[in-house]
Amino acid sequence: MKISARNTLTGTIKAIEEGVVNNEVTIELAPNVELTAVVTKASCERLGLTVGGNACAIIKASSVMVGVE
């Protein structure tokens, strides 16, 4: 598979929180470094995502927002 996104982060699926329509998938990239993505339940099932499995987070965005209190 070839993709245009330059930010690909590989890790292990640490948790999947199921919702009615969407699931929150937490990927551990390194010890104590996690990324959480929201994907549809259908995509989660189609990709066969399971806790303990490997996954890539592919990030493609033209801007990133940062905020502070």
Rank of each mutant, 00 (worst) to 15 (best):
S4W: 04
S4F: 07
A5Q: 10
A5D: 09
R6D: 15
R6A: 14
R6V: 11
R6N: 14
R6C: 03
N7G: 08
N7Y: 01
N7K: 09
L9M: 15
L9W: 04
L9K: 05
T10D: 13
T10H: 15
G11S: 06
G11Y: 04
T12W: 03
T12Q: 07
T12K: 11
I13G: 03
I13V: 11
K14W: 11
K14F: 14
K14T: 01
K14I: 05
I16H: 00
I16N: 00
I16Y: 05
I16V: 09
I16S: 00
E17I: 10
E18R: 13
E18Q: 12
E18F: 14
E18P: 04
E18S: 12
E18W: 12
G19H: 07
V21K: 03
V21R: 03
V21D: 11
N22Y: 06
N22V: 07
N22S: 13
N22R: 02
N23G: 06
N23C: 15
N23W: 05
N23H: 12
E24M: 13
V25S: 13
V25K: 07
V25L: 06
T26S: 12
I27K: 04
I27V: 15
I27F: 06
E28R: 09
E28L: 01
L29V: 13
L29N: 07
L29M: 14
L29H: 06
L29Y: 05
A30E: 15
A30L: 10
A30C: 04
P31N: 03
N32K: 13
N32G: 10
N32M: 13
N32I: 06
V33G: 12
V33H: 04
V33T: 14
V33D: 14
L35H: 03
T36A: 04
T36K: 05
A37W: 10
A37H: 03
V38W: 08
V39G: 06
V39E: 06
V39D: 10
T40D: 02
T40L: 04
T40R: 01
K41I: 08
K41V: 09
A42C: 02
A42F: 08
A42L: 11
S43H: 00
S43I: 03
C44I: 03
C44Y: 12
E45W: 04
E45F: 10
E45A: 11
E45N: 15
R46N: 13
R46T: 11
R46I: 04
L47A: 08
L47C: 05
L47Q: 02
L47H: 09
G48S: 05
G48C: 02
L49D: 07
L49Q: 01
L49P: 00
L49N: 02
T50N: 10
T50K: 13
T50M: 08
T50Y: 09
T50Q: 12
V51H: 08
V51W: 05
V51L: 02
V51M: 06
G52H: 05
G52C: 07
G53H: 10
N54S: 15
N54Q: 14
N54C: 12
A55D: 00
A55I: 00
A55N: 00
A55F: 01
A55V: 03
A55S: 11
C56H: 14
C56K: 15
C56V: 14
A57F: 08
A57M: 09
I58G: 02
I58K: 01
I59E: 01
I59Q: 05
K60D: 14
A61N: 02
S62W: 02
S62R: 09
S62N: 13
S63M: 13
S63K: 15
V64T: 10
V64S: 06
M65A: 14
M65P: 07
